[in-house]
Design a protein around this nucleic acid. Structure first.
Length: 763
DNA sequence: TATAGGCACGAAGCCAGCGTTGT
DNA sequence: ACAACGCTGGCTTCGTGCCT
C-alpha cells in the first residue's frame, strides 16, 4: 500500500562516496532551500563469468572484502549469461577483483570492476543527479553546520518539476605574479583573487598573500556557494591555489567539509559539497570559439561585457605600474564568468540528468564518456552487464560521401538535409552490437552483415532519445518565449541531441566499452547508399545538384524538390527537411568550402580560411571582404577589395595584431617529427620559462630573413614593427586566400599585384 | 579519461637534375 | 676533368583545422 504522507523533495546536487567505508555522500537542496548531506550505505558489486561456477564461488567466498556471492542471470551484448555476482564491503572493488583473478582458476571474464563507486550507486538506486527527488530520510545529526540525514528509502523522481532550484553561485578568477614565463606555485605569488555572486556583486581580494587567501576562504565559507565557477579553474587556477596555500602553510579548504579540492577523473577538481564548474570545458567543445579565451566566449554568448584585456606576458609588469587596471580587468573577467554561467547552467544540469553524472563531472567529461555513461545507466536498467574497457586496435573504415561542387556563383540554392541520418538508419535497420546475427531477417544492401528483429540496445537508446526530444520540443513550443521552463526545456533538448548524435561515432571509437566497428562501418555504408540514392532520384527528376556532403544536398530551387522530398520519405523511409535557402552561394573547386548569402543579407562562410583559426587576421578579413563583395556586388568589387588589402600590406598599414598566426600545440614537443614554425616558437618560449602543454595555442609573426620559415618566426609579443616580413603576408597569406576565391572568376595573381605600371593598379 | 571519417592546404623533407665553383 | 656544393622543381609526409 502506498503511504500518502508528504515526503520532502530534494534536488540532487552531487553524489560522491568513500568506497572503502561503503558510504555514499549525497549533497542536496530541499524545496525550502536548505542544504543537506544525505548519507547512505552501499555495497558495490562486480560480475564474473566462470568455467566452473561451483569451484570459483567457493574460493571467492573465502576472500577478504567479499560480502556476498550469488549466481545471477544477466545479458552480455544481448545474450543471456550466467554470472557470479560478487558484492564487496570495506575494500576497493578493484582490489577484490584482482584477488579473484589471482585465486580463481576458471575465470573467463570480469565485468564492472572498473565502474566507479558513485556510478554504481547512481545506476543501481536509480538516482538522477540534478533532478528533484522524493526522499524518505531520517535525521542523523549535524556536520559542519549542515543537517545530516540518513537515507531510508528513495521514493521517486519528480520528472514534472523541471525548473531548477535557486543555487548560490560564486564566480572567481585569480592572477599570479611571474615576471618571466608561466607562474609556478613554488615561486610566483598570488596577486589578486576576484569573486562575483548575485548577492554580493563584485569583490576583490588583494594585498598580503596569506591574508588574501584567508579572506577569500572566509568569504567562501560565509557565502556558502553551491556552485563555484571559473575559467581554466580545473587545470590551472585551483591546483595553483592549493599548492601555493600549502607553501604558505595554509590549507585551501573551500569545500563544505574540511579538506582541499581533490584531483579527480577527467582532470576535474572535486570540491566537497559544491559543484566546481570550469567554463573552459564548454569552450573546448564549442568549435565556433577558436582562440578559446574568455573574451571570445563572452562575445560568442552575445554578452555586452567590455574587456581591457591584459595578456599573460604583460601582467606582471603592469601590476607594478598600474594595480587598479589589473584588478579592473580581473573584475571584468569574473563578471564575464558569472554571466556566462547564468546562460549555460540549464544545459549543464540537463546533460547531468541525462547521463546521470553529477553536473561538474559531466562538464569535465568528453563526449565519448558522456555517451558511455548514458548507455551504462540504460544497461543496468535492462539487466545488461557493462563490458570492461579493453585496449583494441582500430582499423578505420569508409565514411560519408562528399560530392565535388560545381564551382562558381549559384542563385537560389536549397539545402536539403536528412534529419539525424545515422541515428535514423540505426533505428531503421535495428543496428546494434546485440542484434548482429548471421541468420537474422534484416539484411543490409551490399553487405553480408545481418541483424535480428528483436529491438537492439542502441536502437532502443536512440528511440528513447528521439522521442524525448520530440516530447520536449512539443512542450516547449507551448510556452512563452522567455519563460524559465522553456529555457530549461530548450537546454534539455540540446543535451539530448548531443548524446543521440554521438552514438554512431561512439560505436566506432576504439576506447569505448561497447566499441563495435562493424556497427559504425555498416551505418556509414548505409549513409552513403542513402545519399547516393537521393542524388540519383534528384537527377532523375532533372534537378540540378550543386554540391553534397554526407547527409546534405544542395539543389537549384525547383518545384520538383517537393517530389524528391516525398520520394525520400516514402521510398527510403527517412525524414528530410529544407535546412536553408541561399539567395546566392559561391563554390570553388574545393569540397567543404563555400560561402552563401541568405535572404536576410547574412553571409555564411563555411570551411574557408576566413573562419579558420590558423590564418592571420589580415588574411581572414581580406577573404571575408572579397567574398562579401562578390556575393553582394560582383567580381570587380572583389578585385578592388583584394587590391586594397595588398596595398595596405605594401604600405605597412596593418596593425601588428592582425599579423599574428595562432596554431595549437597538439602533442608534447619531443613527439614532433617535422620542424614546424609554431613548434619552433613553442620551443623558444619553453626555454624562457613558459609552460606549454598540448592544447595550448602559440601566436607568432613571420619576420624578415632568409631560409626556412621556421627560422623566421617570433612570438608575437616580441616582434618590433621593423622586423615584420610584409612580403610574406602578401605572398603567403592575403594573396592566396583572395585568389582562391577570385580564381573561380578568371582573376589571376597578376591582376591583384601592382604591376610596373602603377597607374593601372591604382585606377 | 580521443565520438567517426573526409578534405584542403601550407611547410618540411627528400631526391633527382643541373649549373656553378674550387681544386 | 671532376668532385663538392647549392639551387630548383616535383613529389610525399607532417601538421592543423575545418565539415557533416
Amino acid at each position: 500500500m502506498q503511504l500518502t504522507f508528504i515526503m520532502p523533495m530534494y534536488w540532487i546536487l552531487d553524489v560522491s562516496g568513500e568506497e572503502e567505508y561503503n558510504e555514499v555522500e549525497v549533497w542536496a537542496v530541499s524545496e525550502e532551500g536548505e542544504r543537506v548531506i544525505i548519507k547512505d550505505e552501499f555495497y558495490p558489486e562486480f560480475f564474473i563469468r566462470s568455467g566452473n561456477f561451483e569451484e570459483d564461488v567457493k574460493i571467492i567466498r573465502t576472500l577478504k572484502g567479499v560480502k556476498d556471492v550469488e549466481v545471477v542471470e544477466r545479458t552480455f551484448r544481448g545474450r543471456p549469461v550466467k554470472l557470479i555476482r560478487v558484492t564487496t564491503a570495506n575494500v576497493r572493488l578493484e582490489d577484490v577483483a584482482d584477488e579473484v583473478r589471482k585465486k580463481c582458476n576458471h575465470i573467463l571474464d570480469v565485468f564492472q570492476d572498473d565502474v566507479r563507486f558513485s556510478n554504481q550507486y547512481v545506476f543501481k538506486k536509480n538516482i538522477i543527479p540534478s533532478s528533484w527527488t522524493l526522499l524518505d530520510t531520517e535525521k542523523a545529526g549535524y556536520l559542519n553546520g549542515y543537517n545530516l540525514l540518513k537515507l531510508n528509502r528513495l521514493c521517486s523522481i519528480e520528472f514534472e518539476k523541471t525548473v531548477f532550484p535557486e543555487l548560490r553561485v560564486l564566480a572567481f578568477d585569480a592572477f599570479f605574479y611571474s615576471l618571466k614565463g608561466s607562474p609556478d606555485p613554488e615561486h610566483s605569488p598570488i596577486i589578486s583573487i576576484s569573486v562575483m555572486t548575485s548577492e554580493n556583486g563584485l569583490m576583490n581580494f588583494s594585498g598580503d598573500e596569506k591574508t588574501l587567501i584567508k579572506s577569500f576562504l572566509d568569504f567562501v565559507k560565509k557565502f556558502d556557494p553551491d556552485v563555484i565557477v571559473g575559467f581554466n579553474s580545473n587545470r590551472k587556477i585551483i591546483p595553483f591555489l592549493v599548492e601555493r596555500s600549502r607553501k604558505l602553510g595554509l590549507t585551501f579548504n573551500i569545500g563544505r567539509l574540511d579538506g582541499e579540492p581533490r584531483g579527480s577523473v577527467y582532470g576535474h577538481q572535486s570540491i566537497r559539497g559544491r559543484l566546481n564548474i570550469d567554463l573552459y570545458d564548454l569552450v573546448e567543445e564549442s568549435p565556433e570559439i577558436k582562440l578559446e579565451t574568455l573574451e571570445e566566449f563572452s562575445q560568442f554568448m552575445n554578452l555586452p561585457i567590455k574587456y581591457d584585456t591584459i595578456e599573460e606576458y604583460e601582467l606582471a609588469e603592469l601590476w607594478s605600474k598600474d594595480k587598479t587596471r589589473v584588478i579592473e580587468y580581473l573584475g571584468q573577467r569574473v563578471k564575464g564568468i558569472f554571466e556566462i554561467y547564468k546562460l549555460v547552467d540549464e544545459y549543464i544540469f540537463s546533460l547531468s540528468q541525462l547521463t546521470c553524472m553529477p553536473s561538474d563531472y559531466v562538464m569535465a567529461a568528453s563526449t565519448g564518456f558522456r555517451v558511455e555513461n548514458y548507455l551504462s545507466k540504460l544497461a543496468v536498467e535492462r539487466g545488461e552487464v557493462i563490458p570492461s574497457r579493453k585496449e583494441v586496435v582500430h582499423i578505420s573504415y569508409p565514411g560519408g560521401i562528399v560530392r565535388s561542387p560545381t564551382p562558381g556563383l549559384h542563385k537560389n540554392i536549397v539545402v536539403l538535409d536528412f534529419r539525424s541520418m545515422y541515428p535514423s538508419l540505426m533505428i531503421k535497420y535495428n543496428i546494434s552490437f546485440d542484434t548482429i546475427d548471421p541468420e537474422g531477417p534484416i539484411s543490409i544492401p551490399n553487405s553480408t552483415i545481418r541483424f535480428s528483429e528483436r529491438e537492439g540496445f542502441l536502437p532502443h537508446a536512440l528511440k528513447r532519445l528521439l522521442e524525448e526530444r520530440k516530447r520536449i520540443r512539443e512542450r516547449l513550443n507551448m510556452l512563452p518565449r522567455d519563460s524559465p521552463e522553456r529555457i530549461v526545456l530548450d537546454a534539455r533538448q540540446k543535451a539530448v541531441k548531443v548524446i543521440s548524435n554521438a552514438i554512431y561515432g561512439y560505436t566506432g571509437w576504439a576506447g569505448a566499452r561497447w566499441y563495435t566497428r562493424e556497427i559504425a562501418e555498416v551505418t556509414a555504408a548505409l549513409g552513403r547508399e542513402t545519399i547516393l540514392k537521393a542524388m540519383g532520384k534528384a537527377e532523375e527528376l532533372k534537378l540540378k545538384i550543386v554540391y553534397g556532403d554526407t547527409d546534405s544536398i544542395f539543389i537549384k530551387e525547383d518545384d520538383r524538390i517537393k517530389e524528391l522530398v516525398n520520394w525520400i520519405e516514402d521510398v527510403l523511409g527517412l525524414e528530410v527537411k529544407v535546412d536553408k535557402v541561399y539567395r546566392t552561394v559561391l563554390f570553388t573547386e574545393a569540397k567543404k568550402k563555400y560561402a552563401g548569402l541568405k535572404d536576410d543579407g547574412f553571409i555564411e562562410i563555411v570551411g574557408l580560411e576566413a573562419i579558420r583559426g590558423d590564418w592571420s587576421e589580415v588574411a581572414k578579413i581580406a577573404q571575408r571582404e572579397v567574398v562579401e563583395a562578390i556575393l553582394k556586388m560582383g567580381v570587380d568589387e572583389g578585385v578592388r577589395v583584394a587590391r586594397k588589402h595588398i596595398d595596405n600590406l605594401l604600405n605597412q598599414r596593418v596593425p601588428l595584431k592582425q599579423l599574428i598566426i595562432w596554431k595549437q600545440i597538439t602533442k608534447s614537443i619531443e613527439e614532433y617529427e617535422a620542424t614546424a614554425p609554431h613548434v619552433e616558437v613553442a620551443k623558444k618560449l619553453i626555454e624562457e620559462g613558459w609552460r606549454i602543454k598540448p592544447g595550448d595555442k602559440v601566436g607568432y609573426i613571420i619576420v624578415k630573413g632568409a631560409g626556412r620559415l621556421y627560422t623566421r618566426v617570433k612570438p608575437y609579443f616580441k616582434v618590433e614593427s621593423d622586423e615584420i616580413d610584409w612580403n610574406y603576408y602578401i605572398e603567403k597569406q592575403v594573396l592566396p586566400v583572395c585568389l582562391r576565391i577570385l580564381e573561380v572568376f578568371g582573376i589571376k595573381e597578376s591582376d591583384l599585384k601592382p604591376s610596373k605600371d602603377l597607374t593601372a593598379f591604382f585606377q
